[in-house]
Every structure is written in structure tokens, then in C-alpha cells.
């Protein structure tokens, strides 16, 4: 199985040798392979977008757009209807690990519980999940084996953990 990650590195880095060392098939870069946006207004059908928002309405609208590959739920709350929509439209629930390992505002435990709840809901609803680092700095990157262990920490079994690291490859 091949594994993928997506990062938002502020510094320039050669991602190809890094991906090989860290055990990924490829590390995608935000700004190059996909864009992250907070609003769906003006999103066209061209390109690849990840929508990040606290507002469930915005995220539901985003799921209807073909160019949106996945959504990041900022407040960690996902209702059954939301998960059902994710599954039926074939979009990914993107869970960034950088918010857990390199937390900024909220504490690490809170971020861990939030991600665990979100993943549990998505697994129960059989929605696609992509566990990514979305690292803004090299310090927040993790290797493939570390990400697999992180997925298990967040409630996934071996098979689900592998699927979470693989799903981004088909989407982007």
C-alpha cells in the first residue's frame, strides 16, 4: 500500500527525498498540488481544494463542488447528517495531526480528544478519512510509521490506519 501526506511548509524544502526517507509515496504541497480555503465563494471546477471551516453549512456547500477533495472541520463537531453527506459525495474528512503534535492555542489533550471524536464518528459512518500532518514547519512533520501509530491512538485499527494514510493519493 502507498502512503501520502500533505504539508503547508512555509520554508522551501525538497519534498521528494524527504518523502522517500519518511516512508511516503509522495508528500503533496499546499499551494502547489492543492489549495486550502476558508470559504466556498468563487471556487471553480478547476484545481483541487480543501475547505477548512468551523461552519457546517459552509462545509456542506463545499462538498457539492467537484474540485473540493476534502474538508477540515475546525471545531471538531460532525453530526450524522454531515458524515452521511461526506460518504455519499465521496469527499474526505481531513484530520490534520499538526494541531495535535504542535498545538498553538488549545492544549494537546483537547486537540487529541477532538480528533478522536471526529474520527470515531467518521469511522462509524463509513466516511473517507485522510490523516495528514498539514505541517507548517519541518518540526511538525511525522514519518509514515509515526502517523500509523497516531491513527491507532485516535481509534483506528491497523486496516483503517493504512486507509487513512492512503486515501489522499486517489483524491489529489
Amino acid at each position: 500500500m502507498q502512503f501520502f501526506d500533505i504539508v503547508a511548509l512555509k520554508e522551501t524544502a525538497d519534498l521528494e527525498p524527504l518523502a522517500r526517507r519518511l516512508g511516503y509515496r509522495r508528500i503533496f504541497a499546499l499551494g502547489k498540488d492543492a489549495e486550502i480555503v476558508g470559504d466556498v465563494r468563487g471556487l471553480g471546477e478547476n484545481g483541487r481544494f480543501i475547505v477548512r471551516s468551523k461552519d457546517n453549512e459552509t462545509l456542506l456547500k463545499a462538498m457539492r463542488i467537484n474540485s473540493v477533495v476534502g474538508v477540515v472541520v475546525e471545531d471538531g463537531k460532525a453530526e450524522g447528517k454531515f458524515i452521511e453527506e461526506l460518504r455519499s459525495r465521496g469527499k474526505l474528512l481531513i484530520v490534520p495531526v499538526a494541531g495535535i503534535t504542535c498545538p498553538l492555542a488549545e492544549g494537546r489533550m483537547r486537540a487529541l480528544y477532538r480528533a478522536k471524536t471526529l474520527i470515531r464518528s467518521a469511522l462509524r459512518g463509513k466516511a473517507g478519512i485522510a490523516l495528514v500532518t498539514l505541517a507548517e514547519g519541518r518540526d511538525c512533520l511525522l514519518s509514515r510509521t509515526q502517523m500509523q501509530e497516531m491513527a491507532k491512538l485516535l481509534g483506528a485499527d491497523d486496516r483503517a490506519a493504512d486507509a487513512m494514510l492512503n486515501s489522499l493519493g486517489d483524491a489529489i
Binding site: L22, G23, R138, D139, L141, L142, S143, T145
Partner: peptide, 10 residues
């Protein structure tokens, strides 16, 4: 200083 650690191989 800040740092990150990556496990490469076992």
C-alpha cells in the same frame, strides 16, 4: 529550541 523527530527504520 524547537525540533521534530522522525522514525525512519527499525
Amino acid at each position: 529550541e524547537s525540533v521534530g523527530f522522525w522514525t525512519i527504520k527499525t
